[in-house]
Design a protein around this nucleic acid. Structure first.
Lengths: 347, 347
DNA sequence: CTGTTAGCGCATTCAA
DNA sequence: TTGAATGCGCTAACAG
């Protein structure tokens, strides 16, 4: 492959001039520019990114740490990030953390060792103190889905509390009063926030919160199934259930059917995340949208702006979930719904 | 960050010696090695991959081109590749081709420009001739999901014909004789192979192939829905349908229900790919497994062996699909199934 | 506007 | 077994 040296020789100019037209830095006369461009073209010259990186001390790579790639939310996040970065000529490399503190740490070290210019992190196990301790390290980073005190300008978060509120409020508006809840794992911030939102919606509607109707799940399908099995065995009547993510909602649906419930008439179900799967379920799952691809893209824009000094208008850090109405939730027992808030529930 | 120069100074040896202990190339006395190691440790030294790459003309990156990341099969493929590569200390960067020849080409150029040491390609639009023309180019590549004459040792393929055969054979074994087929897009090799397998199973069972019962889909949910609408409007009775991928099967299910069919009693459905979604559908989708993560990992091993000269025992190029039995296909009209082949259909 | 020069951090001859 | 010298391809002062 041709090098800058060969181009300069062919164009009859110096290395520096070739470099200048490549990066259009500094003034170059149109005539020499044309000569250089022609030489590049004839030689089919491609700049060597590696050499550029070494000379500028910039790898033009940004590292992304996700728990896993094959989960629907993280795949969407990755896609959002890659699209934004690639348009700017930057590269995305990723590593997986598998919700394990050691692996997350190793992944971060791996990415830093690779001389990433910046990191976009979706961590689940490492704690805030670790993040704070890295704050002044050489590699800048941003965080998706966690708000860390003292690092707020680097955090990109969803208002999970509001999302939890929306889900339950939606059921309340349809006339449900006995609403079960399947939460995410204990100790996960997003899970707890969603749960808090649920309770607020209940309280606002004057419904007494019944702890027995709450089950702690694992964010996986199996957890949703187990949850419904447990809830149903309680003999406490309920007409609806909100699941803290769509996968658990899918599991809950399967379990409900194995208990001979007819969906959605016997039981209304609302999920959270709005992953592609939600549309495929039967009935189609009403859920809360988690705009994770947008959030990934926004994190990428932060990097572009703050690390690569690109001119980016504005960067949003806080995202609002919205309710996506489909067919998995209806009025209880066929009663007509209280529709007072319909149409502006997301407002 | 400390450089090799600082390490050498601290250890009181030359640059070359430090380099030798890093790569353990060449002989170094235990005593000096210990000194160097100690110095590295004290300085918390990490080699600069960029500089190494420039010096060795190896980026230690392998590029992966996928149609998209957020689709379930490609996410799984990426995950399989990344795990294998990372264990070997190599990096994965990816680009998306979106089933568009221009974008695929641009993605490949992007990856090559990034000085990837090798490419793993899942292309859908570029043709064999293009691939052949790249054969002797500087960047070695392998191909997933396509067999190219003259490039066979670089191709990793699934026996799609056999998969199509398995799906239909499974229905035949259960007693179905009127079996519709929803294929992938015309011109896609995997789609056509799967279709050929379907016809072979029919022929083997002495069932006359009826072209009217075949619909050309698009591998998306909508295509599956449209397919079933069209098929049902024909007034030609059929008791089962095989869909050339799971997403179309999901669409078909939805459409069947909107026509008031009870699943699986009124209509048996079999899919293809075995994506995570298949388990969530109701009834749970019986399908043909496409071991795409394994195939990705195997492609990565080929790269490790042939590009990085790692000692890898063997590399398989051909993968066999297997049938995954769930609950979406049953004997027609409740008739008891012909189970003669049960238990060894995959054999 | 253009050319010269000196590194970026490391691997790798070649001598010693 | 070790060290000195050279170059990977490019950018970035500094001169001119």
């Amino acid at each position: 492959m041709a090098t800058i040296y060969e181009v300069s020789k062919r164009a009859g100019v110096s290395l520096a001039t070739v470099s200048r037209v490549m990066n259009d830095s500094g003034r170059v006369s149109d005539k020499t520019r044309a000569k250089v461009l022609a030489a590049m073209d004839e030689l089919n010259y491609r700049p060597n990114f590696i050499a550029q990186s070494l000379a500028t001390n910039r790898s033009n790579c940004v590292g992304v740490l996700v728990p896993e790639v094959s989960g629907p939310v993280f795949a969407a996040m990755l896609e959002g990030i890659e699209a934004e970065l690639r348009e700017a000529g930057k590269f995305t490399i990723f590593a997986t953390g598998h919700t394990d503190p050691d692996k997350e740490l190793e992944g971060i070290r791996f990415l830093i060792g690779r001389r990433c210019d910046a990191l976009i992190l979706h961590i689940e196990s490492l704690d805030d103190d670790f993040l704070l301790s890295q704050k002044n390290d050489s590699t800048p980073f941003v965080i998706i889905n966690r708000e860390v005190e003292g690092l707020k300008d680097r955090c990109f978060t969803l208002d999970n509390e509001h999302g939890g509120y929306l889900a339950t409020r939606y059921l309340v508006d349809q006339g449900h009063r006995d609403i079960a809840y399947v939460s995410g794992p204990t100790g996960w911030r997003d899970a707890e926030d969603r749960f808090v939102g649920h309770k607020r919606a209940l309280e606002e509607a004057g419904i007494r919160f019944d702890e027995r109707l709450c089950y702690t799940g694992d964010y996986h399908e199996e957890g949703g199934s187990r949850a419904l099995d447990a809830l149903l065995s309680l003999d406490i009547p309920f007409t609806a259930v909100v699941c803290a993510n769509d996968e658990m909602a899918a599991g809950a649906m399967a379990s409900a059917r194995s208990h001979d419930l007819v969906l959605p008439d016997d039981l209304s179900i609302v999920g959270f995340d709005n992953v592609p799967l939600a549309r495929y379920l039967h009935p189609k799952l009403s859920t809360v949208n988690y705009p994770v691809a947008d959030m990934g893209a926004m994190a990428a824009r932060w990097v572009l702006k703050n690390v690569y000094n690109r001119r980016i208008d504005s960067v949003d850090h806080h995202f609002k979930p919205t309710l996506v109405e489909r067919t998995s939730a209806v009025a209880p027992f066929g009663r007509s719904a209280d529709v007072r808030a319909r149409g502006d529930i997301n407002g």
